[in-house]
């Protein structure tokens, strides 16, 4: 409703320049894969018609459905600005954050298909059980493991040393990468791209001395060697992390350490 008010305001303001076009709303079909564990045996697609603007996000469409059409629609979202990592979902088959995907970047002449991320146990509608994903992250010891006596001031690090792992600090644990990985889909045993990025963040931190323990975890049967470099993770990452490169760097570190 807020959106249509904006449109009204725009109509009333005198358009001095004819090039300043008034934003046009349009109706788009949003096809959501629904599942209610209390009633349904199988998932099914349900279509909703929503009025959207090109600048609206997929999250706005989900809000409109939940608030105005069907309150039972379940999905996770928190900040709505691409930082909390709550609303990763499959949008037209690609893992994306609903809050960072704009209508103008989708083909709105066709239904927008929205499904839960794949490979984690489905709980309801777009909500999956994230616990196996977090368990993999915990296994790589994602915390600073310094050695020596605790310094009296901050642990100093040069800008170059900080830049070494800058990319992997951007992770928001949304699971878009891990649940886009075909190796993770097969048996959920692979640690997955996110856990490797999480380990990379500390392995290449000059202040940390726990690299050996993390590398040992990632050298196991379910570790980095299961990666087939399909780049699905890199394509899926809403933070633009070069995940496949991070995985390759961990492989290199292991090979240099062992041979």
């Amino acid at each position: 409703m807020r959106k249509s008010k904006t449109a009204v305001v725009n109509t009333q303001s005198p358009a001095t320049d004819s090039d300043l076009s008034i934003p046009q709303s349009f109706t788009v079909t949003v096809s959501v894969r629904r599942f209610n564990p209390d009633v349904d045996q199988e998932t099914y697609l349900q279509d909703f018609e929503v009025e959207m603007y090109a600048t609206d996000r997929v999250l706005d469409a989900l809000h409109k459905i939940k608030w105005e059409q069907d309150g039972s629609l379940s999905f996770r979202r928190s900040c709505g600005h691409g930082i909390c990592g709550s609303d990763a979902m499959r949008i037209n088959g690609l893992n994306r954050l609903a809050c960072k995907t704009l209508m103008k970047d989708l083909d709105v002449t066709k239904p927008i298909i929205i499904e839960a991320i794949k490979g984690l146990p489905l709980e309801k509608d777009l909500i999956v059980d994230m616990e196996p994903f977090f368990a993999a992250y915990r296994e790589v010891l994602p915390f600073l493991m310094p050695s020596g006596a605790e310094p009296e001031r901050e642990r100093i690090q040069s800008q170059e040393d900080r830049a070494r792992f800058d990319d992997s600090t951007k992770c928001i644990l949304c699971a878009a990468c891990t649940t886009s990985c075909p190796v993770f889909w097969t048996d959920n045993q692979y640690f997955g791209p996110q856990a490797i990025v999480g380990a990379h963040r500390f392995i290449f931190d000059s202040r940390d001395s726990g690299a050996a323990s993390r590398l040992e975890v990632l050298n196991s049967k379910e570790g980095v060697w299961r990666c087939r470099t399909t780049f699905n993770c890199t394509d899926a990452c809403p933070r633009g992390i070069q995940i496949t490169q991070a995985i390759a760097e961990v492989k290199q570190a292991l090979i240099r350490g062992k041979i």
């Binding site: 059980d129 368990a135 040992e216 975890v217 050298n219 049967k221 060697w225 299961r226 041979i259």
Partner: peptide, 24 residues
């Protein structure tokens, strides 16, 4: 406590570079 997993990862079998050499 972390909830139990439906499909827990099997225990790691000691230090073993088999997958590393296989990859190489």
């Amino acid at each position: 406590p972390a909830p139990a997993l439906l499909n827990p990862r099997s225990a790691r079998s000691g230090k073993n570079n088999y997958e590393l050499y296989s990859w190489l």
